[in-house]
Structures are given as structure tokens and as C-alpha cells.
Design a protein around this nucleic acid. Sequence first.
DNA 1: GCTGGCACTCTCGGTCCTTAAGTGCCAGTC
DNA 2: GACTGGCACTTAAGGACCGAGAGTGCCAGC
Lengths: 340, 340
Amino acid sequence: MSEERKLAVLRAIVEDYVATHEPVGSRTLVERHSLGVSPATVRNDMALLEEEGLIAQPHTSAGRIPTDKGYRLFVDKLSTVRTLTTAERRAIETFMEGAVDVDDVVQRSVRVLAQLTNQVAIVQYPSLTRSTVRHIELVPLEGAKILIVVITSSGRVEQRIIELESTPSEQLVSSMRSRITQASLGQRLPEASLRLADIIDQFARPDRPIVTAIVTTLAQTFSNERSDERIAVGGTANLARFGADFDTAIRPVLEALEEQVVLLRLLGEATSPSLMTVRIGSETGYQELATTSVVASAYGSDDEALATLGTVGPMRMDYPGTMAAVGAVARYVGRTISEG
Amino acid sequence: MSEERKLAVLRAIVEDYVATHEPVGSRTLVERHSLGVSPATVRNDMALLEEEGLIAQPHTSAGRIPTDKGYRLFVDKLSTVRTLTTAERRAIETFMEGAVDVDDVVQRSVRVLAQLTNQVAIVQYPSLTRSTVRHIELVPLEGAKILIVVITSSGRVEQRIIELESTPSEQLVSSMRSRITQASLGQRLPEASLRLADIIDQFARPDRPIVTAIVTTLAQTFSNERSDERIAVGGTANLARFGADFDTAIRPVLEALEEQVVLLRLLGEATSPSLMTVRIGSETGYQELATTSVVASAYGSDDEALATLGTVGPMRMDYPGTMAAVGAVARYVGRTISEG
DNA sequence: GCTGGCACTCTCGGTCCTTAAGTGCCAGTC
DNA sequence: GACTGGCACTTAAGGACCGAGAGTGCCAGC
């Protein structure tokens, strides 16, 4: 009894099942892969694999399919990392080049990822709370309105227009601008938000209502959780490829896609860039997604993760290919965004 | 032979079929609606309606279902306009209140529309080419970079950051700002784009490279067709309610939703606000959407349409209810956006 | 430890039949 | 002349049945 062969059998089962979408039996397995043993031997191995909970049979007389645990082992130990073909690399580049701003980068990346993987692609917009303040601008508009613009290190530009109770003098505006800049430049947004509270006292009492209004708006913008939760989704039409098991495979995914909270949990926390997460079936933590897997990766600049992106697809997916695509797009997006 | 009764029968068929999703026969029709005649009489009417192409039977021994033409007649002549319940009105208000900017308004409206109609909702972002320039700002950043901000009458804020070949003097910046403002303020974006070309000559020759760079970027931003095509989609999970006819009803819609061009054609041109379009089945112009209908309405300020929004759903939908919801949301969004 | 052989199990795809729903038409009635 | 009751006809849907095919588990032998 060879332990290696047992794992080779598991690998063969996963690969065949992913390719054919049909339970794979001992005979076809021997035919397609040169295992050098007879079907009967393979059957013995299969019995053991089944005992270990790595494969299962849908019906007594059917072939085997991998279980969550089987895929997990496959992903962890058995799969060989695939690199993208040059055609695929070029596809990413042509698709992404010409993006004019961060929003555009995100939207294009969602499309290219969906197209590469033939799955549903999800891209989280660069996190506000993780980026730093690069520039702050106050622009008086007509009336007593003022435009507040914040540019972050991730290239994101947030703007608010608010109406003040009276028109501030040019001097006051420029004084606010410089003090606000001084307090927040280079700071993480949450910290900047804290620091700003202090500067109100630095202004003359009559000016304080105006300063307060502006600082409050800024603080809100900095800690805007809504922006942190923004997500782009694409490739839903690929759900059609899941096969006909509509209720088990498609409806739950569609429902999950409508729920931002669920999506965020699926993508997971962005820790360090180039960190790849694979959640298989029940590992997603949602019972309805028991036949679904999620491949996600953080993206960002060299040292720091800005957000995450990934794909949602059937558990029986091409893991090496998907992981390669997700990784490549994440690297590309990270580079593009940190370049500006 | 009463012409009125014939139409009453058609109305009853549409209403019943929409409610039950099953072909409706003469017996059940008489039972459910008090038509005051016998099934046999209804059968005669049905035969005539079928001759006119208003209803059809899927199989010889089945009941009748409305045809495209039947729904069309129903929508045009037979349906009574429904008004929203106060609960529904309140739902719109609570959902929409607290929107911080235009993007937020659009995203919220898509959700509320999907929820009200139980269908897929589509909202086009306010058209850039249809709005006018409200404010333009040039903000020098560190290095030779400059931030260009455009605020449009629809509340949309577009911004670009470009790198100039050299740092412009403060004087030049303020001169550019005022001339650009003068040339474009209040103008439609496409017109503003044209006018800007002329102001380059007004500057001294050494400054022209910088002016040209900025003006070119602005012109691009003004005529940015990408923004004109931006669309938000929501409620895809409602596709699950279409029933089990996956290939005919769900896949085509998912595919259409991925194609912005198709979506834009479905929504149609925004002409005047409060104009409602209903496209039924083959009227959509796409063979794949033969069992699908689109209800769309333009929205905008009182006198002018900014963009369109609507829903995509099964041909067998509750037309009065959907039209009421689309109309109400369109009015609400139009009001919100034109207010600021 | 591997293999061939064999009995066993279970799904899948047809076929056949019955049931139920609905129609169209005709002759009769008000 | 318009409506109605009755009746023969059509068809889809659901259930029972059956055979074929694929695959397994196990055992005896090499």
C-alpha cells in the first residue's frame, strides 16, 4: 500500500471531476491517468480515501467526488502552482491600461478577473481607513458653500460640499487649510480624524462654528465606513456555467452577492498583500454556500494591504488556474494603484 | 357577442396568469371573476381573442396565456394605474434619506426599486453630457501635479490629477481658473468642451503647453462617454423568483446585465422626465429577452431629463404595480438630485 | 500487496398507462 | 341571435415498471 499513490489517486479524482463534472470511477481513472495499477487496486485506495473523508460517492453505485476536505488537501499539498499564459498576461494589461482613476481601475479589474476565471469576480475598493492623507483642499464655492476635497495615498479622491452658516473670509479659509493639512498630512485616516478635533481650539471663538462644521465633515469622511464597504461585482453571467443545479448553486450566490456584509466576510480581512485565501465549501461559513468556494487575495502596495479581491465559484473549480488569475490581477491592481 | 366582455376576459386572463403563473382555463376564470356567463361562452370569447393574436395556448389541451400583443393591450387600455401604498412611499423615503452624494443616491435607489418590484433594477447615473458646469477648480498639488475638479449641475463631481511638465506660477493658475470658469460656467458639458479650445490662444506662448494640458484633460472629462454609460444594477437575486425556467428566463437576463450597451438600449433614451416606457417581450429588440419585459422612466429636474431608470422582469409581471414603483422612484430621485 | 472475477446496488432513460384539465363543437334553449 | 350544457377529443403530467450501464465491495488466487 503506497501512500504516494493514494494521494496521486486523490489528485487524479479532483482533476477529472473538475474537468468532467461527473463522479469518477476506478476504471476511467486508470484509463485516463497512467497510474500503472489495475482498477481493483484503485478501488482499494478509494475505500481508504473515503474512510479518511477525502472523497465520497453520491450514490452507492456511482463514482467518487472530492469532499471539502479532499479539495482542501488538494489545494494545500497536491496542486502545482500554475502561471498565466502570456496571452492571459497580455489580456490583463490591455484590459487595464487606460484606466483614468481608481474607480476605473476597480471596475476594469472586476471584468478582467471574471473573464479570466469564468466565475463571479469581486473587487473591494481600496480601503479608506488603511490609507493616509495625501492632500486636503478647501474650495469656497458660490454662496456660503465650500467644497472639501481629500486625496488619499491610494489615489482615491473623496469630496463633500457643505453649506456654512456664513461665508468665511479668504484668510480664514487659508488658515484652516494650512492647519488642517498640518494636522493630517501623512496620517492614517482614523488618526487624522482624531487629530482634527484638536485644531478647533486654535481658532478665534467667532470662527469656531465654521471650523467645527468643516472639521466634523472631514472627520465623517475619514471614518466613512460606507466607502470601506464599497465593492464591485462582475461576471454574474458566468453563474450560468455552474450547470443546472439552480437552487443549490446559483440562487444562494446571487443572494450573497446582494449582501455586501456577506461579501466582505467572504473576501476576508486584508492583511498583507500577496496573501491568498481559499475557502472551500463549508469553510465559507455559510450553509447556503456549501457547494461554493471563494479564492481571495489582498492587494496593495509592497508593504501594505489596501483591500481584497477574489472570485466566487463552484467548489468544483480549477483551483490552480483561479489562484493564478486572482494572484496576477491582485499584483497588477496593487502596482497600478500604488503608482498613482 | 359583447366586445366589452371580450376585453374583460382578456383582463381577467392577464391578471390571473400574472398571479398564478399558470395557463388559465375557462372554468377557473368564471369561478374567480364574476363574469356572469358560463365557461362555454368564455370559451367562445377566448377563441376570438386567440384569432386576434392576443392570447395563445402552450398546448392544445392547456389554458390560455397572454401574448406580447395581449400584454400590450392590457398595459395600454385595460390596466388601472395603481398608486403606491403609504407604506411603500415611506419605504422609499426612509431608504433614500441620508444619501450623501449622487453616487449614494443612485445606489440607494437601485436597492429600493429592486425591493419594491421584486425584480432586477437598473439605474443610470445622471448623464454628464446633459448637465451644465457649476464650478471648476484647479488645485496645485505637490510636485508639478495639479488637481482638476469639475462640479456639474447634477451634483456630480469629477476630478482628475495630471502631472504638468513644470510647476505653474500661482498667477498662471488663477488666471487659468478664471478664464476657464468664464468660458464654461453654465454651459452644457459638450459645449463647454468646444469653448475651452479657444482660450488657449489667450495665454502667452510660454504658458501654452501647461494650459493645453489642462484644457485637454478638461475637454476629455467633459465628453467622457464612460461616465455617461455608468449604470447601477441591483436585485439580481430576484431572478430566482422567475421560476425554474433557467435557460429561457435567467441566463439571458444575466448576460444582458453584463452588457452595458444592451442595458442602455433597454432603458432607452431619456427624453422628458415622467415619461414611462414599457417594452414587452419581443419589443425589447432582443430575441433572448423574448419572455422579458422592461419598464423604464426618465428622471431629472422638472423640465429636463438627466437619465433613466427602470426594471427588468418576466413578461408575466404585475405591470400596474411595477409602473407605479418605477414612476415613484423616478420622481423621488429626480427631486433629490435637482435639489442638490 | 496486487489483480481478476463476480454478485450486488443504484441511477438513468425509456415505455406504457392513467388521470386531469381543458378545448372545440353541436344541438338545444331563452 | 346569443348563451348554455353536454360530449368527444387532445395532451401534459405523474407514476409504475423495466432493462441497460456503471460502479462498487469483496474474495480467492498469484
